[in-house]
């Protein structure tokens, strides 16, 4: 009824439109450091996933194992973002800011839950395919009728959550921006003071 073959264009369209959504969210939420880092890591993983798509189709019955692995990577990128920021904090300034001002919003919690469901769906699909492979079951109803629509619904929900996260106003980012603006203002004041001192010195000498 809801098999992949019947609605191939719709399922593929929804699966591939998540990358442009990620880019749009990144543009909207550029000022928010936590959301920016999350979206950059998601886009990087999305790129790796797209590169490995062709190879993953050659895995045949083990495709769902690859799916579960890549979804768990997405899950790790969301939940352990602070750890990743800590590892890269010495090299990347953004990561240092994220590590010092970490926040985890409710939308990210929802995205984490969705990734857990993604992993579970892939594991169930893998078990069913293996049961079919070893002639324990004759048909695979989950893979045919449940898996494609549920993955599509989850993709749509994920896109909505990312958009909601990107338009959200996180107070911690305001705090970081305030500190940064204060720091740059101090530098400017210091710069003008040193300029005044140097001009006064010149006048004295003359």
């Amino acid at each position: 009824m809801f098999s992949y073959e019947n609605y191939k264009a719709f399922y593929d369209g929804v699966a591939f439109f998540i990358t442009p959504i990620n880019f749009i969210c990144l543009l909207i939420a550029w000022k928010s450091i936590n959301t920016r880092m999350l979206l950059i890591s998601l886009i990087a993983l999305e790129a790796i996933d797209t590169l490995l798509t062709g190879w993953s189709y050659t895995l045949g019955n083990n495709y769902h194992l690859y799916g579960a692995f890549i979804c768990s990577m997405f899950l790790f990128a969301v939940v352990f973002r602070r750890l990743l920021a800590k590892l890269l904090s010495k090299h990347v300034k953004l990561c240092n800011d994220v590590y010092n001002n970490f926040s985890f919003s409710k939308q990210e919690a929802a995205i984490t839950f969705m990734y857990v469901i993604f992993v579970l769906l892939h594991v169930i699909g893998f078990i069913e395919i293996k049961l079919y492979q070893y002639d324990i079951i004759d048909v695979y109803p989950f893979r045919n009728n449940v898996f494609p629509p549920s993955i599509t619904i989850l993709h749509l929900l994920e896109a909505l959550m990312l958009l909601k996260l990107s338009i959200k106003h996180i107070p911690i980012d305001e705090y970081v921006q305030h500190i940064k603006s204060k720091f740059t203002n101090n530098r400017k004041v210091e710069g003008t003071n040193s300029y005044r001192e140097s001009t006064e010195d010149r006048n004295d000498r003359s």
Binding site: V79, F80, L83, K106, E108
Partner: peptide, 18 residues
């Protein structure tokens, strides 16, 4: 242990946000 600690930080942050 480090991963559990991260999970506890994340839990607190998401509870406060919700």
């Amino acid at each position: 242990k480090l991963l559990w600690l991260e999970i506890s930080i994340v839990t607190k942050s998401m509870r406060l946000d919700s």
